[in-house]
Amino acid sequence: MSVDQAVFDGVLLEAAKEVFETMIFMDIENASEPEQTIDELTLLGSITFTGTLEGCLSIFCGLPAAKAIATNMLGIDATDDISEEDICDAIGEVANMVMGSIKSRVQHGIEKLAVSIPSVVTGRQLESNLCDGENKITVTVNIEDEYTAQFSLLYRESEK
């Protein structure tokens, strides 16, 4: 079975917008810029999927953006203390919910898709290479005109 890349076109941005609007209460817009390298301390939240397709969805952003996302998700003041664990947990949940939203949007075109539990790592100049060389969709977004984040969807047809 050939999975048309058009299935995913637009879906990644739509899914991210839905999650940010309904769960994080922040506006995001397509930055319409090429892929960027974020040099500051970065968080990379990823979630893998298997089934008719296999691959990985990831979000990566700098620590200030991750903190803003986490405080908004939790409904606490931006100046309040928040632990690194809570920030990582929040970014993992963003990856989880965006993947869930994508899945609900494409499930009629894809037979089976099982999603893993999200994981988050921190570091500098992080990138996800799982499935690299196959299909990759990247969307850079501006969050509230203040922060930048990148979503990547890497996937390939399962060999099983």
Partner: peptide, 13 residues
């Protein structure tokens, strides 16, 4: 929920 953050978000919602 295994995510403490998600438990807080659900409680708030």
């Amino acid at each position: 929920d295994d995510s403490a953050t998600m438990r807080k978000i659900i409680m708030r919602t």
